[in-house]
Simulated scan of single mutants.
Amino acid sequence: MNNSPDIPTPWIHRVAVLTTALALLPIFLGAMTTTANAGMAFPNWPNSDEYTMFSYPWLGLIQDMGTNKENYDKFLEHGHRLAGVVIGIAAIVLAGLCWTKRTTSTLTWLGTGVLLAVIGQGMIGGFRVLERMPELAMLHGLFASIVFALMAITATVASSRWSNQEAMLSANSVKGAKIASTFLLFYLLIQYALGGIIRHPMTGMRAPIHEHLGLGILSIVVVGIVSFFEFRSNSSWLKRGMGMVLGLIVLQVLIGLVTYAMKFGVPSMGIVAVAESAGQVISRTAHMITGVLVIGATAVLTIRTYRVGYVKKYSELAVLSQSAAK
């Protein structure tokens, strides 16, 4: 194992990847909870009814879950809370490794940031229950994508590829790619926020359905422009990242169209909207989870692009400095 202060240890990368993967569990259960309108299954937090987090007879709800809506809601909500505990433990381990192993200061602070973000996300979810505020539910969903992106970035910075500067020097200029990928990231966050408003309707506010749908379709054009700059960089690292983003966005748009059809129906195609049908539940949940993956993949692409630009810039400055010294 390489314990150089300039290179992350393999264990930090492994735990960062595991933490990012585990984060999909509370995200999935949270999406299911929102889809089922089960966010207020319990009136209290952090306890569930009169039970503590770990004493609640959670698995006992399974047998009546199919016929009892209240049990179904409580199964989802308490499962979401337990998944939050799991990701909290993973974040503690990750932060601990980042502080105790000899690694970069950037990675140390990223590990700390992940832990603080997970704690903050849990508190937002708790206050959403205690204050009964749909605005906090929307913020809870939006912040989930940011926390996931931060975890994915940490895993990227902890990878051996991040430290392999020689492979980055052969890339072309990434100035345009940096601007384009940054714009795409903020574009997707706005799009995700609009989706959150639709999923968490608030009194007196119109659901921005058409805006969300229009920006979703337009995102294909935006990602096409970003692809042009990223592929022009001639970096395999950036090309792979761009390919992941492109595939996820196309998938997200397709799932979004299915979600729209399931929610509102398409009479000309014989599709009738049925409230809380399996089609609605599956499509809405898949749309939300894929949205998180899109933001995470775009955040990783953006940080990779900036890394390549940083390495090339300081390599060129080093060459100029050496030339001037001669």
Rank of each mutant, 00 (worst) to 15 (best):
S159I: 12
S159R: 09
S160W: 14
S160Q: 11
R161P: 12
R161L: 13
R161Y: 13
W162S: 09
N164M: 14
N164A: 15
Q165T: 14
Q165S: 15
E166P: 13
E166R: 14
A167T: 05
M168N: 03
M168I: 06
M168V: 07
L169E: 01
S170E: 08
S170C: 09
A171Y: 03
A171G: 10
A171I: 00
A171N: 03
A171K: 00
A171V: 02
N172K: 11
N172C: 07
S173V: 04
V174D: 00
V174I: 04
V174F: 02
K175C: 04
K175I: 08
K175G: 12
G176H: 06
G176Q: 02
G176W: 03
A177Q: 05
A177C: 09
K178F: 06
K178E: 04
I179E: 00
I179C: 05
I179T: 09
A180S: 14
A180R: 04
A180L: 07
S181N: 05
S181G: 08
S181C: 12
S181Y: 01
T182C: 01
T182Y: 00
T182F: 01
T182K: 00
T182D: 00
T182A: 01
F183P: 01
F183R: 01
F183Y: 09
L184I: 07
L184R: 04
L184D: 00
F186A: 00
F186Q: 00
Y187N: 04
Y187V: 04
L188P: 11
L188Q: 13
L188H: 08
L188C: 09
L188M: 14
L189T: 04
L189Q: 06
L189M: 13
I190R: 07
I190H: 08
I190V: 14
I190L: 11
I190K: 06
Q191T: 05
Q191L: 15
Q191N: 10
Y192M: 12
Y192L: 10
Y192G: 09
A193G: 12
L194R: 10
L194Y: 13
G195F: 12
G195E: 02
G195S: 05
G196F: 07
G196C: 07
G196I: 05
G196E: 01
I197K: 13
I197N: 02
I198L: 06
I198K: 04
R199A: 15
H200D: 03
H200N: 08
H200I: 10
P201F: 06
M202C: 05
